[in-house]
Simulated assay, not measured.
Amino acid sequence: MKIIGAFGASRYTIRELELFRDADTPAVAALLAACPVVKVAKGEPVEDGLRARLYVVLSGSLGVQPATAAGEGEIQRVLPGESVGEQSVLDDAANLDAITALDDSELLVIEPALVWRLIDEGNGVARNLLRLLSFRIRAANALLRRRQKLGEFYRQLSMNDGLTGLYNRAWLNDMLPKLVARSRMDRSPLSLVMIDLDHFKRFNDTHGHMAGDTALATAAAVIRSALRPSDFAVRYGGEELMAILPNTNRTLAVMVAERLCARMREAVVFDDMRIALPHLTGSFGVASLGAEQDERSLVEAADAALYRAKEAGRDRIHV
């Protein structure tokens, strides 16, 4: 960054600068006349960027990467007539934003004490500054809302299984303790149904994993469509699925498992019925939250019941 002269001797006029629009009075002109104009080469950082200074772009452009967005590749472009550094001057704090010339640029540099004199002596400068800061706040709020929506999208994406669309183990590990705690607080029943697709490994080995994925997605759709809006369907792992049933006692949970078991047998996986195993069956283990159980022991109880269903011949329910 190299000083090439003073603003009063430059080819630029005050009315071209947004901060001084409708405020180009003789008093403002006199205060700005001695302010230095510096030249910054393309790609060069603005020196003393950590200092509280106001930089007005006279030509070229600057790129500003906010400190809060470091590493995210988020750069705000500052064009001729626009300025940067207002907030650091008003806060009397170091400017932590990274400021770099995107083109060969000429900048008007205004020190903090002079900024305050301009505000005190020119109502137009104060109005323009308020308008500028208001715009910056609105833009920052809009960016924050977009980030929140994007963050929620990715959070939801990370909580769902990509193949089946059901919730995944990460969701289960986060939510099941909360559902157990709510059940305790409300003194309401909570039940689990563990589901294992019968002979799924054999099917995968015979027909390939793509056909296996189709069968698994079909089973997930059966479970999801048979549950209430207040229930939750989870891919526990591999071919193991789970239904979480809030406000459901053991008797009702068995009825839900029976409905799932019947619908699983009826589901058509492939249009070509010549393919072996055109229908699915599943083994079901049902458990309800006991007085001394936590989420881990509840899952273990449902898993033990599932194991007994498989040992008894599959395509059935055990409690």
Rank of each mutant, 00 (worst) to 15 (best):
L32Q: 04
A69R: 14
D92P: 01
A70C: 12
D24S: 13
D48T: 07
V89F: 09
R51G: 10
D48E: 14
E44N: 06
G85H: 03
A70N: 13
T25N: 01
D91N: 10
V37W: 00
N95C: 10
A70Y: 15
L32E: 04
A67N: 10
L107T: 06
E74Y: 11
V37N: 02
L62H: 14
V38Q: 06
L50V: 07
E47P: 07
R53H: 08
P26Y: 09
G60R: 08
A30M: 08
A23Y: 08
L79H: 11
L102K: 15
L90K: 06
G49I: 01
L79V: 12
G60E: 05
T100N: 12
V46E: 01
T100R: 15
A27N: 02
A93N: 07
V64I: 15
D92C: 05
V78G: 12
V89G: 14
L58Q: 04
A70Q: 15
D91T: 03
Q76T: 02
R77P: 00
V78K: 12
N95A: 07
P36H: 00
G85E: 06
I75L: 09
T68Y: 05
V40W: 02
D104Y: 14
A69W: 09
A101F: 11
D97P: 01
G43V: 10
V89W: 07
R21S: 10
V38I: 11
A23F: 08
P66M: 13
